[in-house]
């Protein structure tokens, strides 16, 4: 099976030289569903950040979607990011754009045609149950609704990899249920690799998944 992520002796540190992830080795198969858990401040989000090139490895090698993150050029990094869907804990929606336009963003960047874009956005808005809110701005929505918009945006361009940082962190059961269904659907139907950073793995997960746990800077697979 193809590996979508390969990390070898990977160390991650911020500028103050405090090592957060220390010489870890792991890989993720293409089409798999992966949970990364760990205590607060263990380095889960830092690791996720490095997967989309937001943080360069301090040591070792990290290959995502065939792109070596260490020393990657801006052009290559943009190319990689165009094939990744990211869901942030703080949503990162463009406040001055309507939710419809926010969902369109990856499609616009990937140069999709207008009719394709519109059909895709309409279908995603239906999936996240926000069709009636299409013209609203992010700050007019609740936290759960904003996260559903962020989810729809991450799925809009059919990425090869979805990275989700605490996607259901502060959400009600209804929104959380919708988000997990969408992530499961993307993984089972579209064969998208999904990596979710979370504190708790939902008990209702209906698919096979891999579980990595981060503790004291090292990463271990939990069976």
């Amino acid at each position: 099976m193809d590996k979508v992520i390969i990390a070898e002796n990977l160390s991650l540190a911020y500028s103050n030289d405090e090592t957060i992830i220390n010489k870890v080795n792991f890989s993720v198969d293409s089409g798999s569903f992966v949970f990364i858990t760990g205590a607060s401040g263990s380095g889960k989000s830092t690791l996720l950040k490095s997967l989309y090139g937001g943080l360069k490895p301090d040591q070792g090698s990290l290959i995502v979607g065939g792109v070596e993150i260490n020393g990657v050029s801006r052009k290559k990094l943009n190319f990689l990011r165009r094939h990744i869907g990211i869901v942030f804990q703080d949503y990162k929606l463009v406040k001055e754009w309507t939710i419809e336009k926010n969902i369109t963003l990856p499609l616009l960047i990937n140069g999709y045609e207008k009719n394709v874009t519109q059909n895709q956005v309409d279908s995603l808005l239906k999936h996240v149950r926000l069709k009636h809110q299409a013209g609203k701005y992010p700050l007019e929505l609740s936290g759960g609704e904003q996260q559903r918009v962020a989810m729809a945006r991450a799925l809009s361009h059919n990425p090869i990899l979805i990275l989700a940082d605490e996607p259901t962190g502060n959400l009600d059961d209804y929104s959380s249920g919708l988000i997990w269904n969408l992530l499961e659907g993307a993984n089972t139907q579209l064969k998208t690799t999904v990596i979710v950073v979370t504190h708790h793995i939902p008990a209702t997960m209906g698919i096979d998944y891999k579980h990595f746990h981060i503790e004291y800077g090292s990463i271990n697979e939990v069976n």
């Binding site: 990011r81 990744i84 963003l105």
Partner: peptide, 11 residues
């Protein structure tokens, strides 16, 4: 903020 978000999606 907007430019950063666009950058995160490879713009």
């Amino acid at each position: 903020e907007r430019m950063s978000i666009m950058g995160l999606f490879g713009a």
